[in-house]
Each structure stands twice: as structure tokens, then as C-alpha cells.
Design a protein around this nucleic acid. Structure first.
Length: 218
DNA sequence: AATTACGTCAACCGCAATGCA
DNA sequence: TTGCATTGCGGTTGACGTAAT
């Protein structure tokens, strides 16, 4: 098996970049561009592999990178695009100027994923969760809020079970309605209606105030 | 104050895609 | 068409900071 030069056995430096290394990389790219990442480290005087340099530049040093927290608008765009494109982070990043695929991927995994799970939405499928954990959580939530109305613990338990099931049904129905809306967007792409000439239309759908967006995501 | 648990994010790894001779 | 080199992408890891105990 052929291994990349960055893999095992090479004596390239790894780990966090120092300010000096950043400066060297920025300085070199400003003067010469980055046509050949393989040759760049040597020419720039860096003991890093080209891959590491490319990653550092595209994810951190590029001058057009927008840093800081994601806005709610950006978050909505990511969720909507993810429902259409899946884990295609680079394609999602194309719709968010100044944001990198890595940044979006991290934001998804640390924030949005959790949020969707809490909303009862499976972050992978964007469909309502039907797994046991979710219903257990709902049941426990209700239990904590209402337990103790009856003298008989069994009565309480049965009542809570019924209420939890009822609430879960409402939850699922509401999410189904949202997904039916999202499906419209999916169909647009699968029917090749999202070619380059239709990107404006798509952007409008994604960014505009319309019922394709998840509600109450904040 | 010390320790542990958890969240975040930069960076790495390996595979896939692409370019080129 | 084939095989190699390079680049791009997505999943994963690990260091670091902060909150909780």
C-alpha cells in the first residue's frame, strides 16, 4: 500500500503550528501563491508536509476566513443544506462565505447535532427520532415534572407512560410536517433543478423566510 | 485547591477523486 | 488505458480550556 509522505516514517513536524511557522507560510504564499503544495514547505523553509501546510492555510490562515461564532442565520442554512446534502461539508461551506468545511463540521458535531437530538430530530436523517432513548427522555422529563399526583406509584407510572406516548405522538406529527417541507428541497436537487443557473433560487429558498426551515431552533 | 468530567476545535489520517505522462 | 503523484474530503483524535465536584 502506498502511503502519503505525511504518514508514518517521515520526520516532518506535526502538531500545533507556531506563530513563526504561520508567518513563514503566509509570507511565502503571499509572494508565490500555492500552486504546488508538495513543493511548498521546502521552498518556504518549513519542516512540514504539504498536506499539513494546505490544511493550515485553508482552515486557519486564509485572509478571507470569517472567525467567531456562527449566526442563527448561518446555523439555519447549515441545517437546511445538511438535510439536502448530508455530510458534504465542503459543499455546505461553498454556501457560507468565509467558513471552512472543517469549521462547519465541528460546529455541526458540537452544537447543531445536539440541538436536533433535543428537538427529537435524527441529525443523520432529519427525520423524527423513534429510538428508545428519546422516548425514555420524554418519559423521564414528564416524570420529574408530574410524579406524585397519586398515592399509588403504579397509577402514576401508568399515567405518565400514557401521557409520554401522547406527547411523543404529537412531537412526531409536528416533525413529519417539517420533513415534508424539507423533502420539497430534496426533490429539487435530485431532479437536477439545482444546477448553477438555479443556485440563486436555491439560495433564496434556504435563506429566505419560508416554511422550509426548522422552527424553534434557537 | 485539587481532581475529574466535559466541550471545543485544530490537526491528523486514510481513502477517494483528479490530473497527467 | 494504466499507473503514479497530488489534492480534496470526511471521520477521528487529542490537547487544551472550563465547569463541576
Amino acid at each position: 500500500m502506498v502511503r502519503s509522505p505525511c504518514s508514518h516514517g517521515s520526520d516532518f513536524k506535526k502538531g500545533p503550528w507556531t506563530p513563526e511557522e504561520d508567518e513563514k507560510l503566509i509570507d511565502y504564499i503571499k509572494r508565490n501563491g500555492h500552486e504546488n503544495w508538495k513543493a511548498l514547505p521546502k521552498l518556504a523553509g518549513l519542516n512540514r508536509c504539504g498536506k499539513s501546510c494546505r490544511l493550515r492555510w485553508t482552515n486557519y490562515l486564509r485572509p478571507d476566513i470569517k472567525r467567531g461564532k456562527f449566526s442563527e442565520e448561518e446555523e439555519r442554512v447549515i441545517v437546511n443544506l445538511h438535510s439536502v446534502l448530508g455530510n458534504k461539508w465542503s459543499r455546505i461551506a461553498n454556501h457560507l462565505p468565509g467558513r471552512t468545511d472543517n469549521e462547519i463540521k465541528n460546529f455541526w458535531n458540537t452544537h447543531i447535532r445536539k440541538k436536533l437530538l433535543q428537538m427529537g430530530i435524527d441529525p443523520n436523517t432529519h427525520k423524527p427520532r423513534t429510538d428508545l432513548d428519546h422516548f425514555l427522555n420524554l418519559s423521564q422529563f414528564l416524570g420529574a415534572a408530574q410524579f406524585g399526583n397519586s398515592a399509588d406509584p403504579l397509577d402514576n407510572f401508568l399515567q405518565l407512560q400514557a401521557e409520554a406516548a401522547q406527547l411523543a405522538n404529537i412531537h412526531v406529527l409536528r416533525n413529519l410536517l417539517q420533513i415534508m417541507n424539507t423533502k420539497t428541497l430534496t426533490n429539487l436537487e435530485s431532479n437536477s433543478l439545482l444546477g448553477s443557473q438555479n443556485h440563486n433560487l436555491f439560495e433564496g429558498l434556504v435563506n429566505g423566510d419560508n416554511h422550509l426551515q426548522y422552527q424553534g431552533s434557537s
